[in-house]
Amino acid sequence: MMPRAVMTWVVLALVAAPAAQAEVTLGDVLSPTGLKGFVTVDRLPVPADPVLQQGRTVWQGTCMGCHGGNKATGAPKITATKKWQPRIEQGLPVLIDHATNGFLGKTYAEMPARGANPNLSDAEVAAAVAFMVWASGGEDAALAFIRQK
C-alpha cells in the first residue's frame, strides 16, 4: 500500500500538471462580461486559422491597450460576449469599416481609424477585427468571413 504522504504528492502532481500545460480554448475565455481583469494576449487562445493568427498579433500591438479592458476608452472588451453580440450582428464588413475609417459611438466614444496606427494595412485591420470577433463570441461569423474572402 502506498504511504499517505506519497499518495498525496502523486495526486497533487496529477492535478497540477495538466492544468499548467492545458491550452486555452474559446470555452475558457468567453462569458457575458469577459475575462476578469485586463486581458493581455497571452490569456487568449491561439486560433488555427493563419488570418486569425495574424489578427492576434496585430491585436496585441495596437488593439490590446483599449480592447483589453480599458474602460475609459469605451472599447468593448475582448471575450465579453454581451458587449460584442450586437456589434457582431452588424456584420464584419461594418465593423471593419469602423475600425479602418474611424467611428464615433452613441456616447461619442471614439474608435480611431486603424486603431490610431496609420501604418496598419487594410488586411491587418481586417484580420484584427476578425480575431476580436472570433474571441468574443463570433467564431462562426469570423470563420465565414475569412472563407468568403
Binding site: C66, A72, T73, P112, R114, G115, A116, N117, P118
Partner: peptide
C-alpha cells in the same frame, strides 16, 4: 495613459519638442 486616438500619437510624433516620434495606437 494609453494612446487611444490618432490625435494623441500624431500630436506627440509631430511635435518639435517630443523626444519620441514613433508612438502608435495602444502604446503607453
Amino acid at each position: 495613459d494609453v494612446a487611444v486616438a490618432e490625435a494623441c500619437t500624431s500630436c506627440h510624433n509631430d511635435h518639435k519638442d517630443s523626444p519620441k516620434t514613433d508612438f502608435e495606437g495602444g502604446d503607453v
